[in-house]
Computed example of a mutant assay.
Amino acid sequence: MSITKTFFKLKESKIFQTVVASVIITSSIIVGAGTYELDSALRQFILIADYAITIFFVVEILIRFFGEKKKINFFKDGWNIFDSIIVISSLIPTGAGTSIVVLRLLRLMRLLRIISLIPEMRFVIEALILSLRKSIYVLILIFILLYIYAVAGVILFEEIENSRFSHIGEALLALVQIMTLSSWETIMLPILDVYPSSWLFFISFVVLSSIIVLNLFVAILVDVVSEMRRDREKILSEKD
């Protein structure tokens, strides 16, 4: 049996994938444990474990690479590129100060590799990415809506103290908060005390942005998921 076939069977085996997933989770737990005040012995253990995990991930990527019949196919898979970037980032040598913080954040990114191991999670992420491509005009519509209401808000409420509409930048931030429905009444109520009819401004924006426009994203995502599921079922039926 050739080395390529051996590595291919290894990387496709459930045991190998389970071990990789377990190491990814362990790596994330170790990064979390490093946020506590630990004695020198435990910190030394975490450091050694981190080195061992990094070596394991490098070996795992090499197994997946050499398990491909055509090595170029490894780089055609976006998930392989994604995993490779995360693993390579783990090889960055530690420094001092800010570089250590960046390195710990990069180590934490290893947890994202669990996505590439679970087909259902890959399906969700791919659907989200595809839906974002199809949502470009919805994003443009949201920006236009935000800009119109931001300028209108500055014109109408600029002179009100603590109105969050003193200039367009602040107004845009306030409208994003309103759009997410996060304590948006705290922005509206002070203005409502001065201009009782200003509720029309805020309610109309909430209806247009949160209820109508954001629901368009949901509709696009549902359509993309349905389309991807049909394509997957078609491919499976052709194989059968």
Rank of each mutant, 00 (worst) to 15 (best):
A33V: 12
G34V: 11
T35D: 10
Y36H: 10
Y36I: 10
Y36F: 15
E37L: 04
E37D: 09
E37I: 09
D39E: 08
A41H: 05
R43I: 01
Q44W: 00
I46Y: 07
I48E: 07
A49W: 04
A52L: 08
A52D: 04
T54L: 08
T54D: 09
F57N: 00
V58W: 03
E60Y: 11
I61V: 11
I63C: 05
R64P: 01
R64F: 08
R64K: 15
F66N: 05
F66I: 08
G67H: 06
G67F: 07
G67L: 06
E68R: 08
K69H: 09
K70P: 02
I72N: 09
I72H: 06
F75L: 15
F75V: 10
G78E: 12
G78Q: 07
W79H: 06
N80S: 11
N80A: 09
N80F: 15
N80P: 11
I81S: 14
D83S: 04
S84R: 04
I85G: 13
V87G: 01
V87D: 04
I88S: 11
S89M: 15
S89W: 13
I92Q: 08
A96I: 12
A96L: 10
A96G: 10
G97W: 13
S99C: 05
S99K: 11
V101G: 07
L105H: 10
L106W: 06
R107M: 05
R107G: 05
R107D: 05
L108V: 03
M109D: 04
L112K: 01
L112W: 13
R113I: 09
S116A: 13
I118L: 13
I118D: 08
M121G: 02
R122S: 02
V124W: 02
I125N: 02
E126F: 01
A127L: 02
L128S: 12
L128E: 15
L128M: 14
I129A: 11
I129Q: 08
I129P: 01
S131T: 03
L132E: 08
R133G: 15
R133W: 14
S135R: 03
Y137R: 08
L139F: 12
L139Q: 09
I140C: 11
I140R: 01
I142L: 13
L145M: 09
L145F: 05
L146P: 00
Y147R: 00
Y149H: 01
Y149A: 02
A150I: 00
G153P: 00
G153I: 00
V154F: 00
V154Y: 00
E158H: 13
I160W: 04
E161N: 07
S163V: 02
R164A: 09
S166L: 15
H167G: 14
G169V: 10
L172K: 03
L173P: 02
L173D: 06
A174C: 10
V176C: 11
Q177N: 11
